[in-house]
């Protein structure tokens, strides 16, 4: 079996990261923005895992990716909790209506 060229993995990671960034930049719904952040984290994980193939003894990349997943889970839990509080307070989850900083 011919293994896949790692360059392609990196490319997919880069593309996923850029799409995630676009989601973060453009979407108005806070939950979708959170999804964008998850996409970016996943892109990073793909990169890490791709490099980790060449390090079968210590697999540092995979370990880091593992921690990234765990931290992402914690982050999304807290972020959603905050979001629910924000929603209770402002009655909206649309980011462009949350312009407290503007005042």
């Amino acid at each position: 079996m011919q293994p896949v060229d790692s360059f392609l993995f990196l490319l997919v990671g880069a593309a996923l990261f850029c799409i995630g960034l676009t989601v973060v930049l453009l979407k108005r719904h806070a939950i979708v923005v959170l999804m964008g952040i998850e996409l970016m984290l996943n892109a990073v994980n793909i990169n890490l895992v791709a490099f980790s193939q060449y390090d079968p003894d210590r697999i540092q990349g995979q370990m880091l990716a593992l921690f990234v997943i765990v931290v992402a889970a914690a982050e999304s839990a807290v972020a959603l909790a905050i979001l629910i509080q924000v929603y209770r307070h402002f009655r909206t989850a649309q980011l462009d209506e949350l312009t407290e900083l503007n005042q």
Binding site: L21, V24, L25, L26, V33, L95, T99, L101, N102
Partner: peptide, 14 residues
């Protein structure tokens, strides 16, 4: 630019 929208700030950062 100073519109209070987080996303435009992020855009500027990127």
């Amino acid at each position: 630019v100073q519109n209070g929208r987080i996303q435009s700030y992020i855009t500027a950062a990127v």
